[in-house]
Design a protein around this nucleic acid. Structure first.
Lengths: 139, 139
DNA sequence: GTAAATTCTATTAAACTAATAGACAATATC
DNA sequence: GATATTGTCTATTAGTTTAATAGAATTTAC
C-alpha cells in the first residue's frame, strides 16, 4: 500500500516543484495544505521528514516556508517513498535496502514465493527509482 | 505488503499441490501447519477462505483434510493474493477489480502519482495474474 | 517586540494484523 | 452406534500501525 503519508508527501513535493518554477521564495505549509487538501498538522510531520533527508529545504520565521532541497532531476519517486513509507519490498527477503531472511524459510534459492516477489520487486523498483520528479512533471 | 496471511496461504497451497502429486487422499491441517511452520489455528482460517473460493477442497471427518479444488494450471498467484489480502493495487484509483476515486483528486487523467502507480500496478498484475501455481512449481 | 513561520514533544482514536480458545458438526471405522 | 478424527464456526484479544490533533517552543523579518 501507498500510505496517505507518502501520497501526501508526493503531492506536496510535486506542487512545490511546480510553484517554484514560477515564483521565487518559499511556500508556506498552510498554502501547501490548503491547495492539496492535506491536514496541516499531518503535513508538517511529512515535510519535516523530507527536509531531514535533504529533499526539501525550509526557512524559519516570517517569510519562511519550504522550497526544494535539490534539483528535481536528482530526486526520484523511490527516494520519497522510502523516506515516508520505508522499504519498497513487499516481503523483506527480496529487498536491496532492507534485506531480512524470512523466519520460516528453509532455502531462499528454491523458494517459489520469493522468486515471484523478486520479479515484482525488481519491476517496481525499476519504475520508482527510474522516475525522477522532473520525469513525473513532464507533460 | 504481502501479509503473513497471504504468505502462509501460498506456502500451504504450494505444499498441498506438491504432496498431491505423490499421495492420494487429503492432507490434514495439522500436517500442513507443522511442515510449513504456520500457527495451526491461523492456518484454519486461511484454508477456509481458500476453500470458499474454490481454490481448495476439504473433506470432513476421520481421514479427511484438504486437497486442491482445481487444477494447478487454473489457479494463479494473483487469485490467491486477492482472496487473502484483498486488491493488489496499492492505490485504489488504479485498480481494475476494486476501483475507487481518490478523495482529493481533481483530475485523474493528469495526476502524476496515478500515472506512476498505474505502471507499477500493471507490471505487478502481469506477474501475479500471469503466474499459475503450475508455473510457480516448475523447477 | 510583535507577527509569522517552522519545529518539537506528546497524545490519541480507529483500524488492521496475527493469533488464540472453545464449542460444534461431519465422517470413518470398529 | 460409540468413538476418535477431522474440519467449521463464533468470539475474543494483544499488539502494531496509521492518520491525525494539540500545544508549547524556537527562529526570523519587520
Amino acid at each position: 500500500m501507498l500510505s496517505k503519508k507518502a501520497k501526501y508527501g508526493l503531492q506536496a513535493t510535486i506542487y512545490l516543484a511546480k510553484v517554484e518554477r514560477k515564483k521565487n521564495g518559499p511556500v508556506q505549509i498552510a498554502e501547501l495544505a490548503a491547495h492539496e487538501k492535506i491536514p496541516k498538522k499531518f503535513l508538517e510531520i511529512i515535510l519535516l521528514e523530507l527536509r531531514k533527508h535533504g529533499i526539501l529545504h525550509s526557512k524559519l520565521g516570517a517569510g519562511g516556508g519550504y522550497s526544494m532541497g535539490k534539483s528535481v532531476d536528482k530526486i526520484t519517486i523511490g527516494q520519497i517513498v522510502r523516506i515516508l513509507d520505508g522499504p519498497i519490498a513487499s516481503i523483506s527477503c527480496v529487498s536491496k535496502t532492507a534485506y531480512r531472511k524470512c523466519d520460516e524459510c528453509k532455502d531462499e534459492k528454491t523458494c517459489e514465493i520469493r522468486k515471484i516477489w523478486k520479479k515484482v520487486y525488481d519491476s517496481t523498483v525499476k519504475i520508482l527509482d527510474g522516475t525522477t520528479l522532473a520525469d513525473a512533471m513532464k507533460k
